[in-house]
């Protein structure tokens, strides 16, 4: 199979370049990660992050033929050749397929991604109805891979000021949680022309999410909560 890989080695002094590689691999039942690791076994200078190889740890997000995906759950047989693999867009490249995720994590931390409830804790669990718990479905499953946020042009232009779809989805996860008491504070934190409203609803994030989540819908719900509290 034919591959075109983005290569960048900061110590070499060379500019980034695309490397053409031909790999002898039977695509049936194999994922893109299998191919990248087979390439690395031949040329260990290729660097990428990977861990769980089953789509739950979020390490190996890359841009494949123009789309952000997790290499470990992208079947080779689905991909048009030459398979072009680049680092996630919109973040500084450290080396080859590895980007600096810190701008992404910083936005995640900015939404206070933890339950806030200052009431004294009961000796047992706090109760939550199955219907209230169901509101978290589609939000808590985020694996912080960065596929959505780095597919968003608003984040490319405003990485310091726009929270981005992953962070906003997590903000919604806590707003929606019946156990969380900080909804007003969370909405204040987002009511800002950049932090929330740079989202133009183009839904690149929905298209990119490897877990099938819908950040645009969550962002829409945050916006409507903001409207509701005004009227």
């Amino acid at each position: 199979m034919k591959f075109r890989l983005y290569r960048f080695h900061p110590e070499s002094g060379e500019k980034p370049f695309m490397q053409d590689i031909e790999l002898d691999i039977e695509p049936a039942g194999k994922m893109l990660l299998d191919a990248l690791l087979a390439i690395k076994a031949q040329d260990e200078t290729l660097s990428l992050r990977r861990s769980c190889r089953e789509g739950v740890c979020g390490s190996d997000a890359v841009n494949v033929n123009g789309k952000n995906r997790l290499a470990c759950i992208t079947p080779l047989s689905e991909l048009k050749q030459p398979i072009e693999v680049r680092p996630l867009p919109g973040l500084p490249v450290i080396r080859d397929l590895i980007v600096d995720m810190e701008p992404f994590y910083k936005q995640y931390r900015s939404i206070k991604p933890y339950l806030i409830n200052d009431a004294p804790e009961p000796e047992v669990e706090r109760l939550q109805s199955p219907a209230d718990r169901a509101l978290l479905d589609g939000a808590y499953e985020c694996i912080l891979c960065g596929c959505c946020t780095t597919a968003c042009p608003s984040f490319w232009w405003n990485p310091d000021t726009f929270v981005g779809p992953a962070g906003l989805l997590q903000a919604y996860r806590f707003i929606a949680d019946s156990r969380d008491e900080a909804t007003a504070e969370r909405l204040d934190n987002l009511e800002d022309p950049y932090r929330l409203y740079r989202c133009r609803g183009i839904m690149n994030c929905v298209d990119a999410c490897p877990k099938g989540l819908n950040p645009t819908e969550a962002i829409g719900r945050i916006k409507s909560l903001l409207v509701k509290r005004r009227v």
């Binding site: 933890y114 000796e123 706090r126 109760l127 199955p130 978290l136 806590f174 949680d177």
Partner: peptide
């Protein structure tokens, strides 16, 4: 230890009576 996790916000699935 499990109740503590719940208090920290772990999104456990729930029974009809609201318990874990």
């Amino acid at each position: 230890a499990v109740y503590e996790l719940e208090h920290m916000g772990l999104p456990f699935s729930r029974l009809d009576n609201g318990k874990i």
